[in-house]
Amino acid sequence: MTEEDILSEFRAADALLEGHFMLSSGRHSAHYLQCARVLMSPERAAKLALALVQKMPRELRQQIDMVVSPAMGGLIIGHEVGRALNKDAIFLERPDGIFHLRRGFQIEQGQKILMVEDVVTTGLSSREAIEAVKNAGGDVLAEVALVDRSAGSVDLGVPFYSLLEMNFPSYNDDEIPPELAAVELTKPGSRK
């Protein structure tokens, strides 16, 4: 899939939003990619997951034992990437603000893990999820995401592949431009 094909999928699902958004990273933006909308179609989710898997080097794909994704945003795409790789897909949750494996999920010592996210902006959630997997005994080989909002600047400590690099500006609380501050703030993400 080309970048334009991917953007077309987001547009077709009304998943590219404009307004004033609080991102999960805590930053503000005039644009929000609602991946849950683009992934609500099983056919579209499967197509995007397959395209994401194809972005990874073949040698990497062959090494992966399991797919792990952080809840909430990574659940659907993580499951679909697991399906595309024919590997189990589990997820991490934050019941107390820190990522944990729950629901009887386990990672065996040394198991080769692919981390899957929907959107990466600052990489904070990804780095926290990678650390949780390491603490559980896993070896994170790489991370993939539908969208890299850092435009290629994020460092996760592992190889990182995305379908789409977006460079929509985002702002700290003290940097919000007046025209954005004048728009009502919404927080569409899953983190409190």
Results as ranks from 00 to 15, higher is better:
residue 2 T to F: 02
residue 2 T to N: 13
residue 6 I to C: 02
residue 6 I to H: 00
residue 6 I to Y: 01
residue 8 S to E: 09
residue 8 S to A: 14
residue 8 S to Y: 02
residue 8 S to N: 12
residue 9 E to V: 13
residue 11 R to G: 04
residue 12 A to T: 02
residue 14 D to W: 08
residue 14 D to N: 15
residue 15 A to N: 03
residue 17 L to K: 12
residue 17 L to P: 02
residue 19 G to T: 05
residue 21 F to P: 02
residue 23 L to F: 07
residue 24 S to E: 11
residue 25 S to Q: 03
residue 28 H to W: 06
residue 29 S to R: 09
residue 30 A to P: 06
residue 31 H to E: 14
residue 33 L to N: 07
residue 34 Q to F: 02
residue 36 A to V: 05
residue 37 R to K: 15
residue 37 R to S: 09
residue 38 V to L: 01
residue 39 L to N: 01
residue 39 L to Y: 02
residue 39 L to W: 01
residue 41 S to P: 03
residue 44 R to S: 09
residue 52 L to V: 06
residue 60 L to T: 05
residue 61 R to W: 03
residue 67 V to A: 00
residue 70 P to W: 06
residue 73 G to P: 00
residue 73 G to S: 02
residue 74 G to C: 09
residue 75 L to A: 05
residue 85 L to R: 00
residue 90 I to K: 00
residue 91 F to E: 00
residue 91 F to N: 00
residue 95 P to H: 08
residue 96 D to L: 10
residue 99 F to E: 04
residue 99 F to R: 05
residue 101 L to W: 01
residue 102 R to V: 10
residue 106 Q to A: 15
residue 106 Q to E: 15
residue 108 E to H: 14
residue 108 E to I: 10
residue 111 Q to D: 12
residue 113 I to C: 04
residue 117 E to K: 07
residue 118 D to A: 06
residue 121 T to M: 04
residue 124 L to Y: 15
residue 128 E to W: 07
residue 128 E to R: 11
residue 143 E to W: 02
residue 152 G to R: 05
residue 152 G to H: 03
residue 158 V to F: 08
residue 161 Y to P: 05
residue 162 S to Y: 08
residue 163 L to S: 05
residue 164 L to N: 01
residue 165 E to I: 01
residue 165 E to G: 09
residue 168 F to A: 14
residue 169 P to K: 10
residue 170 S to T: 15
residue 171 Y to F: 15
residue 176 I to M: 06
residue 179 E to T: 11
residue 181 A to C: 07
residue 181 A to L: 14
residue 189 G to P: 03
residue 191 R to D: 10
